[in-house]
Amino acid sequence: MRRLKEHSLGLFFGVLFVAALIGQAFAGWHAFNAQQAADGLGTLSLGRYLTSSDFAVDVSENWQSEYLQFLFYIAATVWLLQRGSPESKELDNAGLESDEAQKVGPYADERSPRWAAVGGIRTTILSWSLTLTMGTIFLLSWLAQSIAGQVARNEERLASLQDPIGWTDYVLSADFWSRTLQNWQSEFLAVGSMAVLAIYLRQRGSPESKPVGEAHSATGVEG
């Protein structure tokens, strides 16, 4: 029970993710088949829909934008500051910080990850591992979106009796960039507004907020 409580944040979002994905699968399947039937075209079983490009592009276009959002947020907050925001570092602390502050090399303690202490390429990899992983997932999701999106777009084109287009033409097309940018704008708005709103607004008990009584001008203080 204690173990469950100590991992409740990850578990909560894991359960929400699976439930939402299942909901998306059923809603997307019904919407796809309704459109196909209205156009006099073949419908898909749920199994075929789940392996279809239509489902894959809808999933991957959202994944890529979420991982891009966190990639930018993790990397941008190294150097960029926001006075009064708990999302920002203290105003005199921009940059990669000293080895001592980051507990790497000779400053690693007995509880530090081994790669933090050994130095060289392994310490560099560990130092950037969060950004590298988020960036890799972003790029793979975006690639998946482009591949699935090309197939889905060509299904629509064939249904309209147009000739299909190649991958290169697709990634330069309005459809690809419309799907991409409509996701990016919402992510950038959400993360930017959170950094700014958290200057003046509070959520008692949340580490994403300053303590309720903390000054609006206090920067880099989390509750």
């Binding site: 196909q36 073949g42 898909l44 889905a152 299904e155 299909p164």
Partner: peptide, 27 residues
Amino acid sequence: YGSMAQVQYRDETVFLSRFPDGWRVIA
């Protein structure tokens, strides 16, 4: 591409859709 297909000949093109009982010509 997914549930749709096109077969191109020299001066003719045919479009097909995949139904539960197989491919059928739609144009």
